[in-house]
Protein backbone atom coordinates (compact mmCIF):
# COMPACT_ATOMS: atom_id res chain seq x y z
CA UNK A 1 0.00 0.00 0.00
CA UNK A 2 1.28 3.45 -0.88
CA UNK A 3 2.11 5.52 2.14
CA UNK A 4 0.27 8.80 2.55
CA UNK A 5 1.48 9.56 6.02
CA UNK A 6 4.84 10.45 7.49
CA UNK A 7 6.88 7.72 9.25
CA UNK A 8 5.86 9.15 12.65
CA UNK A 9 2.18 8.68 11.87
CA UNK A 10 2.77 5.27 10.27
CA UNK A 11 4.57 4.13 13.43
CA UNK A 12 1.70 5.35 15.59
CA UNK A 13 -0.83 3.47 13.43
CA UNK A 14 1.28 0.30 13.39
CA UNK A 15 1.53 0.30 17.20
CA UNK A 16 -2.15 1.06 17.75
CA UNK A 17 -3.03 -1.79 15.38
CA UNK A 18 -1.30 -4.22 17.76
CA UNK A 19 -3.76 -3.46 20.56
CA UNK A 20 -6.43 -6.06 21.28
CA UNK A 21 -9.63 -5.39 19.34
CA UNK A 22 -7.86 -3.09 16.88
CA UNK A 23 -7.03 -3.70 13.22
CA UNK A 24 -5.35 -1.50 10.63
CA UNK A 25 -8.61 0.30 9.86
CA UNK A 26 -9.56 1.12 13.44
CA UNK A 27 -5.92 2.03 14.19
CA UNK A 28 -5.98 4.64 11.40
CA UNK A 29 -9.22 6.08 12.78
CA UNK A 30 -7.80 6.20 16.31
CA UNK A 31 -4.54 7.81 15.14
CA UNK A 32 -6.49 10.43 13.23
CA UNK A 33 -8.68 11.19 16.24
CA UNK A 34 -5.60 11.55 18.45
CA UNK A 35 -3.82 13.86 16.03
CA UNK A 36 -6.87 16.05 15.55
CA UNK A 37 -7.42 16.40 19.30
CA UNK A 38 -3.88 17.14 20.32
CA UNK A 39 -4.69 18.90 23.59
CA UNK A 40 -7.66 16.85 24.73
CA UNK A 41 -6.33 13.42 23.71
CA UNK A 42 -2.87 13.11 22.22
CA UNK A 43 -0.75 14.86 24.84
CA UNK A 44 -2.68 13.57 27.87
CA UNK A 45 -2.51 10.04 26.46
CA UNK A 46 1.23 10.33 25.88
CA UNK A 47 1.66 11.54 29.47
CA UNK A 48 -0.54 8.74 30.80
CA UNK A 49 1.45 6.16 28.86
CA UNK A 50 4.77 7.53 30.13
CA UNK A 51 3.41 7.59 33.65
CA UNK A 52 2.10 4.04 33.45
CA UNK A 53 5.33 2.76 31.91
CA UNK A 54 7.34 4.37 34.70
CA UNK A 55 5.18 3.41 37.65
CA UNK A 56 2.94 0.40 37.03
CA UNK A 57 4.51 -2.93 37.93
CA UNK A 58 3.31 -6.43 38.67
CA UNK A 59 2.78 -6.81 42.43
CA UNK A 60 5.58 -8.94 43.88
CA UNK A 61 3.07 -10.71 46.12
CA UNK A 62 0.05 -11.49 43.92
CA UNK A 63 0.97 -10.45 40.37
CA UNK A 64 -1.72 -7.77 40.02
CA UNK A 65 -0.82 -4.53 38.25
CA UNK A 66 -0.43 -1.41 40.38
CA UNK A 67 1.74 1.66 40.85
CA UNK A 68 2.64 0.50 44.33
CA UNK A 69 4.30 -2.72 45.38
CA UNK A 70 2.81 -4.60 47.15
CA UNK A 71 -0.38 -3.60 45.35
CA UNK A 72 -3.27 -1.73 46.97
CA UNK A 73 -5.16 -4.98 47.66
CA UNK A 74 -2.19 -6.79 49.18
CA UNK A 75 -1.30 -3.85 51.43
CA UNK A 76 -4.90 -3.19 52.54
CA UNK A 77 -4.93 -4.19 56.21
CA UNK A 78 -8.72 -4.57 56.20
CA UNK A 79 -8.55 -7.41 53.64
CA UNK A 80 -9.09 -10.91 54.96
CA UNK A 81 -5.64 -12.52 54.96
CA UNK A 82 -7.10 -16.01 55.34
CA UNK A 83 -8.45 -16.01 51.76
CA UNK A 84 -6.67 -16.15 48.42
CA UNK A 85 -8.65 -16.02 45.18
CA UNK A 86 -6.77 -17.45 42.17
CA UNK A 87 -7.48 -15.81 38.80
CA UNK A 88 -6.05 -16.28 35.33
CA UNK A 89 -5.31 -12.63 34.53
CA UNK A 90 -5.70 -9.14 35.96
CA UNK A 91 -8.93 -8.71 33.97
CA UNK A 92 -10.56 -11.42 36.07
CA UNK A 93 -9.31 -9.73 39.26
CA UNK A 94 -10.95 -6.48 38.16
CA UNK A 95 -14.19 -8.36 37.46
CA UNK A 96 -14.10 -9.82 41.00
CA UNK A 97 -13.43 -6.37 42.46
CA UNK A 98 -16.29 -4.80 40.46
CA UNK A 99 -18.61 -7.36 42.02
CA UNK A 100 -17.52 -6.04 45.41
CA UNK A 101 -18.41 -9.31 47.12
CA UNK A 102 -14.91 -10.52 47.93
CA UNK A 103 -12.78 -9.17 50.74
CA UNK A 104 -9.75 -11.45 50.57
CA UNK A 105 -6.57 -11.21 48.54
CA UNK A 106 -5.61 -12.57 45.10
CA UNK A 107 -3.10 -14.56 43.15
CA UNK A 108 -2.85 -13.75 39.43
CA UNK A 109 -1.47 -16.80 37.60
CA UNK A 110 -0.60 -14.99 34.38
CA UNK A 111 -2.18 -17.65 32.16
CA UNK A 112 -3.36 -21.26 32.19
CA UNK A 113 -1.58 -24.56 31.76
CA UNK A 114 -1.50 -25.48 28.09
CA UNK A 115 0.94 -28.05 26.76
CA UNK A 116 -0.03 -27.22 23.17
CA UNK A 117 0.82 -23.55 23.73
CA UNK A 118 3.99 -24.39 25.67
CA UNK A 119 2.73 -22.93 28.96
CA UNK A 120 3.79 -25.07 31.92
CA UNK A 121 3.70 -24.63 35.72
CA UNK A 122 7.05 -22.82 35.65
CA UNK A 123 5.62 -20.14 33.36
CA UNK A 124 2.82 -19.31 35.81
CA UNK A 125 2.88 -17.88 39.35
CA UNK A 126 2.15 -21.28 40.86
CA UNK A 127 5.24 -21.69 43.05
CA UNK A 128 4.45 -18.31 44.67
CA UNK A 129 0.86 -19.40 45.27
CA UNK A 130 1.92 -22.62 46.98
CA UNK A 131 4.42 -20.72 49.15
CA UNK A 132 1.74 -18.19 50.19
CA UNK A 133 -0.77 -20.96 50.94
CA UNK A 134 1.74 -22.54 53.32
CA UNK A 135 2.47 -19.37 55.28
CA UNK A 136 0.09 -20.36 58.10
CA UNK A 137 -2.19 -17.34 57.73
CA UNK A 138 -4.14 -18.59 54.69
CA UNK A 139 -7.03 -20.96 55.34
CA UNK A 140 -8.82 -21.13 52.00
CA UNK A 141 -7.78 -20.88 48.35
CA UNK A 142 -10.67 -20.10 45.98
CA UNK A 143 -10.07 -21.11 42.35
CA UNK A 144 -11.86 -18.64 40.04
CA UNK A 145 -10.70 -20.07 36.72
CA UNK A 146 -12.57 -20.35 33.41
CA UNK A 147 -14.78 -23.38 32.72
CA UNK A 148 -12.67 -24.43 29.72
CA UNK A 149 -10.48 -27.52 29.33
CA UNK A 150 -7.36 -25.47 30.11
CA UNK A 151 -9.03 -23.69 33.02
CA UNK A 152 -10.25 -26.90 34.59
CA UNK A 153 -6.96 -28.72 34.00
CA UNK A 154 -5.19 -25.86 35.77
CA UNK A 155 -7.73 -25.94 38.63
CA UNK A 156 -7.23 -29.68 39.05
CA UNK A 157 -3.46 -29.27 38.99
CA UNK A 158 -3.56 -26.50 41.61
CA UNK A 159 -5.83 -28.56 43.86
CA UNK A 160 -3.24 -31.36 43.75
CA UNK A 161 -0.33 -29.00 44.40
CA UNK A 162 -2.18 -27.50 47.36
CA UNK A 163 -3.35 -30.86 48.73
CA UNK A 164 -0.82 -30.92 51.58
CA UNK A 165 -0.64 -27.16 52.21
CA UNK A 166 -3.16 -27.33 55.03
CA UNK A 167 -5.73 -25.09 53.32
CA UNK A 168 -9.16 -25.86 51.96
CA UNK A 169 -9.34 -25.48 48.16
CA UNK A 170 -12.68 -24.44 46.65
CA UNK A 171 -13.84 -23.30 43.23
CA UNK A 172 -16.57 -20.95 42.04
CA UNK A 173 -19.99 -22.54 41.41
CA UNK A 174 -21.17 -22.99 37.84
CA UNK A 175 -24.75 -23.00 36.66
CA UNK A 176 -27.72 -20.71 36.14
CA UNK A 177 -26.61 -17.06 36.06
CA UNK A 178 -28.34 -14.61 38.40
CA UNK A 179 -31.38 -13.22 36.58
CA UNK A 180 -30.98 -15.90 33.91
CA UNK A 181 -33.89 -17.56 32.18
CA UNK A 182 -33.64 -21.32 31.80
CA UNK A 183 -34.85 -21.40 28.21
CA UNK A 184 -31.95 -19.20 27.11
CA UNK A 185 -29.29 -21.43 28.67
CA UNK A 186 -27.28 -23.89 26.65
CA UNK A 187 -27.74 -27.59 27.42
CA UNK A 188 -24.28 -28.03 28.96
CA UNK A 189 -24.89 -25.26 31.50
CA UNK A 190 -28.28 -26.67 32.44
CA UNK A 191 -26.76 -30.13 32.93
CA UNK A 192 -23.99 -28.64 35.10
CA UNK A 193 -26.50 -26.62 37.15
CA UNK A 194 -28.57 -29.74 37.69
CA UNK A 195 -25.55 -31.71 38.90
CA UNK A 196 -24.65 -28.87 41.28
CA UNK A 197 -28.18 -28.46 42.68
CA UNK A 198 -28.60 -27.87 46.39
CA UNK A 199 -31.39 -27.76 48.98
CA UNK A 200 -33.68 -24.78 48.30
Amino acid sequence: MASFASPEIERLIALLAKLPGMGPRSARRAALALLKKRDQLLTPLADALTDAAAKVRACSVCGALDAQDPCAVCSDRSRDRALICVVEEVGALWAMERAGAYRGRYQVLGGLLSALDGVGPDNLRIGELVARARDGEVQEVILALPATVDGQTTAHYLAERLADAGVSVTSLARGVPVGGELDWLDDGTIAQALRARRPA
Binding site: L113, A115, G120, P121, V149, Q152, T153, T154, H156, Y157, E160, R161
Partner: peptide, 14 residues
Protein backbone atom coordinates in the same frame (compact mmCIF):
# COMPACT_ATOMS: atom_id res chain seq x y z
CA UNK B 1 7.76 -33.17 28.20
CA UNK B 2 8.09 -31.86 30.80
CA UNK B 3 7.55 -35.09 32.69
CA UNK B 4 5.23 -33.61 35.31
CA UNK B 5 3.08 -36.30 36.96
CA UNK B 6 0.71 -33.77 38.55
CA UNK B 7 0.10 -31.96 35.28
CA UNK B 8 -0.47 -35.28 33.50
CA UNK B 9 -2.88 -36.35 36.23
CA UNK B 10 -4.80 -33.07 35.87
CA UNK B 11 -5.13 -33.61 32.12
CA UNK B 12 -6.11 -37.25 32.59
CA UNK B 13 -8.75 -36.22 35.07
CA UNK B 14 -10.23 -33.77 32.51
Amino acid sequence: GPDDPLWLAALESR
